[in-house]
Design a binder for these strands. Structure first.
Length: 139
DNA sequence: CCGAAGACACATA
DNA sequence: TATGTGTCTTCGG
């Protein structure tokens, strides 16, 4: 079986399925981040600290690393390890799921992957919005 | 280098 | 609701 992103293919898929189901990964996975810019690394470091069942927003991350929200969005969008680095826990300040990549699909066929991931992690929605109690502020 | 483009935020009408 | 502006990083010419 092949090697995939620093772990066996089998284990990688197994952990990925767990995350899709809203379960916690069995073990913390070490991922190489050599290709990232130093700015991206700073952003992903914050993402790693977002607790399960909580979300934060682009502006708060920006403040935490002394940058701007758009720059944070750009870094989040180029996350090389989605799911493992929980970019799905970052939402706009209005607490909707935001303009993540999948949101460009036609509405009737839109998979709403981000929302489903969040719901399985226990994030409470009311209509299109996440309840304010789920907001986490980076320390 | 310079300009344009973002998974944004905030102000103003 | 809907433009318009500010701000910061990346990428392409």
């Amino acid at each position: 079986m092949g090697e995939h992103r620093g772990m066996s293919e089998h284990r990688y898929l197994e952990e990925m399925v767990r995350i899709f189901r809203g379960q916690e990964p069995h073990s913390r996975v070490r991922l190489g981040r050599e290709q990232n810019t130093s700015f991206q690394t700073r952003v992903y470091t914050v993402l790693d600290r977002i607790p399960r069942g909580r979300v934060t927003n682009y502006g708060l991350i920006a403040k935490a690393i002394d940058s701007g929200p758009r720059a944070v969005g750009q870094a989040v969008g180029s996350n090389p390890y989605p799911l493992f680095v929980p970019c799905h826990r970052v939402v706009p300040v209005d607490m909707t799921v935001g303009n993540y990549s999948m949101s460009r699909a036609p509405r009737h066929s839109r998979p709403d992957v981000k929302r489903r991931l969040l719901e399985r992690e226990g994030i409470p929605f009311q209509g299109e919005r996440i309840l304010p109690g789920a907001l986490w502020t980076p320390v």
